[in-house]
């Protein structure tokens, strides 16, 4: 049974960038990325990989959906080329992530999904690498009235149902839900495959819809349920007391004694 899958993918500043690449602007309450490129949120890449595996095993039409202020077309193209069939981009100043919270984002995505048409399965990453909140997937499911399973490490479609291996802190569980459904995907699914150059070329011809705020018909102002009142740069750095000795073995010993002395242990 071939299914229609929508994968929600957010563009974020590369979370692997060094701490110095995240400039905290306290006055504007926003983080300004310095010298790091936008990437697809890693967990959303995992979600796309999960979708491609379903496509390989039982057939699927995959639409990649992304929402933001100004989306990098190169990043979208590479993701689509990994195995999606179409894309929808929802773009505009009103969609700058720093002005949206999870409720507003979920409402906008829900409106976009209704424009895409009937779908069987929505896959989202478990959380975004910038906000780290882990809310949009479940918010979307609530708005669309869909059953939702979080933290998938494996997603299969079997007989009109979705079967999910879900990550638990001490193991895993298997959960099933009727389609249509929403699943949030965890890193354990595995990395998104790299597209070939040929696939990237071919992906340029795949259908792409670009919507602006006026097309969506949802005004995100007034949809926020959480407000950021301040943003600060954390003081993560500490004064490191380096324990030195003539040999590494002696340094290990001395470290133990220092920790005992300072009553750390």
């Amino acid at each position: 049974m071939s299914v229609n899958i929508i994968v929600c993918a957010k563009q974020v500043p590369d979370p692997e960038g060094p701490p110095s690449s995240f400039e905290v602007n306290e006055a504007e309450r926003r983080v300004i990325p310095r010298g790091i490129p936008p990437v697809i949120n890693p967990f959303d890449e995992n979600a796309l990989e999960a979708a491609i595996r379903i496509k390989e095993s039982s057939g699927a039409f995959i639409t990649l959906l992304s929402l933001g202020r100004s989306l990098s077309r190169a990043v979208i193209l590479k993701a689509v080329a990994s195995g999606a069939d179409a894309s929808m981009l929802v773009e505009g100043d009103a969609f700058d992530p720093s002005g949206l919270d999870a409720s507003a984002t979920a409402s906008l995505l829900a409106a976009a999904i209704e424009k895409i048409g009937p779908c069987d399965l929505i896959l989202c990453g478990r959380q975004a690498a910038d906000t780290n909140a882990g809310l949009v997937g479940l918010g979307l499911a609530a708005i669309l009235g869909l059953p939702a399973v979080t933290l998938a490490q494996k997603v299969e479609v079997v007989d009109g149902r979705v079967r999910v291996e879900r990550v638990l802190p001490d193991g895993l569980e298997v959960v099933e839900a009727p389609l249509p459904a929403l699943v949030t995907v965890s890193g354990e699914v595995g990395d998104l495959r790299y597209p070939s150059l040929q696939a990237i070329k071919a992906a340029k011809a795949l259908p792409q819809t670009v919507l602006g705020p006026e097309d969506l018909g949802v005004d995100p102002s007034g949809l926020r349920r959480v407000e950021t009142v301040a943003l600060k740069a954390p003081s993560r750095e500490r004064n490191c007391k380096l324990v030195e000795a003539d040999t590494p073995e002696e340094a290990g010993r001395k470290l133990a004694l220092t920790l005992r002395q300072d009553k750390v242990i």
Partner: peptide
């Protein structure tokens, strides 16, 4: 930079004596 205590060295040499001393 984010630690309170540190030893620069190969763990294979540092750790056994650290554990033994503790």
């Amino acid at each position: 930079k984010v630690s309170d205590y540190g030893v620069v060295g190969d763990w294979k040499q540092v750790l056994p004596s650290f554990t033994a001393a503790l």
